[in-house]
Computed example of a mutant assay.
Amino acid sequence: MNEFTNNTIEINQLPKFEEVLLKGLNPKYITVLLFNFSLLLVFVILGFSALFYFKQDAFSNTIWTIILVAIVVILAGVVVFAKLSFQKKGYAFREHDAIYKSGLISETTTIIPFNRVQHVALHQGFISRKLGLASVELFTAGGSSSDLEIPGLLLEDAQIIKNLVSQKINPLKLDEPIEVVSTETPLTEEHE
């Protein structure tokens, strides 16, 4: 009979996830990020254009110039921020878990053990699909949204990762017999 043990672990003996070499996202993903930011900016510009068209006298020419300059500065800032934050994103898959790191100002590293994963999904948005990219989402128990999403993967890589995680969470047990259920109806002889 095994005795229960619960020994203390020294902090310096814990594996260091910081030492794991992370793989960067596909460079095409920057296009998806810039498209999403540009779409938001288009709506802002359309809003100010409508305001300018219908209520040109709402602001002085100086204020309208400041608004235009601010939009250009924000657009440039978004492009720079997107490129810098893109370089900080990375992922890795180890034997027992998945790691995803992101964040430019506030860095976040998420580690999900495979034994906690309930479901894995592959997602492609419109622009991602056109670029041959996909995201892999890992779901743990108790949530309706994914606990870990790794965007900017080539579709082929995302499919391989999805299959790997699926095998980790639902391993095929070789010693269990596989039951085959026939869906065909048996033929019966007709007598005249």
Rank of each mutant, 00 (worst) to 15 (best):
residue 102 S to F: 01
residue 113 P to F: 09
residue 51 L to I: 15
residue 116 R to Q: 07
residue 83 K to T: 05
residue 30 I to C: 10
residue 50 A to E: 12
residue 152 G to D: 07
residue 19 E to T: 07
residue 90 G to A: 13
residue 151 P to C: 07
residue 40 L to Y: 02
residue 134 A to C: 08
residue 190 E to R: 11
residue 9 I to R: 02
residue 151 P to E: 12
residue 187 L to T: 07
residue 71 I to F: 06
residue 44 V to N: 01
residue 76 A to R: 05
residue 58 A to I: 14
residue 122 L to D: 11
residue 151 P to R: 02
residue 184 E to S: 00
residue 9 I to F: 09
residue 40 L to N: 13
residue 50 A to C: 07
residue 33 L to F: 04
residue 124 Q to D: 06
residue 88 K to L: 02
residue 109 T to F: 06
residue 77 G to C: 04
residue 114 F to K: 10
residue 64 W to M: 10
residue 89 K to E: 12
residue 136 V to W: 05
residue 178 I to G: 07
residue 69 V to R: 00
residue 34 L to I: 01
residue 52 F to Q: 08
residue 92 A to Y: 03
residue 99 I to H: 07
residue 177 P to K: 08
residue 2 N to Q: 14
residue 147 D to H: 02
residue 21 L to Y: 06
residue 45 I to P: 03
residue 118 Q to P: 00
residue 138 L to M: 15
residue 1 M to Y: 06
residue 140 T to I: 06
residue 91 Y to H: 13
residue 96 H to W: 04
residue 82 A to R: 02
residue 18 E to D: 15
residue 105 I to K: 01
residue 165 V to R: 01
residue 36 N to G: 09
residue 54 F to C: 03
residue 126 F to K: 12
residue 170 N to R: 09
residue 150 I to A: 11
residue 63 I to N: 06
residue 106 S to M: 05
residue 129 R to M: 09
residue 190 E to W: 12
residue 22 L to G: 10
residue 144 S to R: 10
residue 53 Y to F: 15
residue 151 P to H: 07
residue 3 E to I: 14
residue 87 Q to N: 14
residue 144 S to T: 07
residue 2 N to L: 13
residue 84 L to V: 01
residue 149 E to W: 00
residue 160 I to T: 14
residue 186 P to G: 01
residue 150 I to Q: 09
residue 36 N to R: 10
residue 81 F to V: 03
residue 8 T to V: 08
residue 92 A to W: 00
residue 33 L to I: 01
residue 80 V to Y: 12
residue 148 L to I: 06
residue 106 S to D: 13
residue 159 Q to W: 02
residue 23 K to I: 11
residue 105 I to Y: 04
residue 57 D to G: 00
residue 100 Y to N: 04
residue 93 F to K: 05
